[in-house]
């Protein structure tokens, strides 16, 4: 699935677009950055409610394909600016993490 397809599936809005044709492999859900850093795998979709600029550092470290901000969490402007300058895909959905992942899982 591409980032664009995931965004459509989750009815997500675009926060920062770098390469929405990027292929997603797997996913990780979590907000404690130390856990995310260690466990999120490259090219995954990372589901979180964290909206501060440190999300960018962790997204870069893990080389995730997209950050999915859940539960209508509004990103800091700093996060938006940093994501755009560092080329990180970020989308936002009103769904909570469980709902979002359930929808993705049903797609197989």
């Amino acid at each position: 699935m591409t980032v664009k397809q995931l965004a459509n599936l989750l009815k997500a809005t675009t926060v920062a677009e770098c390469d929405f044709d990027r292929q997603i492999e797997g996913g990780y859900a979590g907000d404690l950055l130390s856990f995310v850093m260690g466990r999120a795998t490259p090219n995954c979709a990372w589901y979180t409610i964290m909206t501060n600029v440190n999300v960018c550092a962790v997204a870069t470290l893990t080389d995730c394909a997209v950050v999915v901000l859940c539960e209508d969490c509004q990103p800091d402007q700093l996060l938006v600016d940093r994501a755009q300058s560092q080329g990180i895909n970020v989308i936002a959905t009103s769904l909570d993490m469980y709902q979002a992942i359930t929808i993705v899982a049903k797609q197989g």
Binding site: D31, L32, L33, S34, F35, N52, N54, V55
Partner: peptide, 9 residues
């Protein structure tokens, strides 16, 4: 609240 302080550093 920033996502740190998990005691995993």
């Amino acid at each position: 609240s920033l996502g740190f302080g998990a005691g995993m550093g």
